[in-house]
């Protein structure tokens, strides 16, 4: 998995690509929680090139969301491929995360 932090229209976007599994999650967690602790908000996660996610990846985003909520920040998930979106839906987490169809939708929301 690769993680790149970019900025678009003044908003921080974490671009992810590859597979988010138990091997990748600790690296992602470190990057995500560093941004959360810095108070970066809103933070958009670009899932467009994520091909797989397991429960450790899901747990990482739940932790990130909780960290954001603690200071009123916003974590926005965008461009989820259907297989990834389905896992959020199965775990009923699509009800608690802000999920957008595209990066632009997330930025403009």
């Amino acid at each position: 998995m690769t993680i790149i932090l970019i900025e678009k229209y003044g908003k921080k976007i974490l671009e992810l690509s590859g597979e988010i599994d138990m091997n990748a999650s600790p690296v992602l967690r470190k990057e995500l929680m560093t941004l959360v602790k810095k108070g970066v908000t809103p933070l958009v996660i670009d899932f467009n090139n994520v091909s797989y996610i397991d429960s450790s990846g899901i747990a990482t985003f739940v932790e990130g969301l909780k960290g954001m909520m603690a200071f009123g920040g916003k974590l926005k998930l965008a461009a989820l491929p259907s297989a990834v979106k389905e896992i959020f839906s199965f775990s009923k987490l699509d009800r608690v995360f802000e999920i957008y169809g595209s990066i632009d939708d997330a930025i403009n929301s």
Partner: peptide, 12 residues
């Protein structure tokens, strides 16, 4: 219905 990290793997 609980939002917390962990505990999802068994369901999957």
């Amino acid at each position: 219905d609980q939002v917390r990290p962990g505990g999802l793997g068994v369901h999957l």
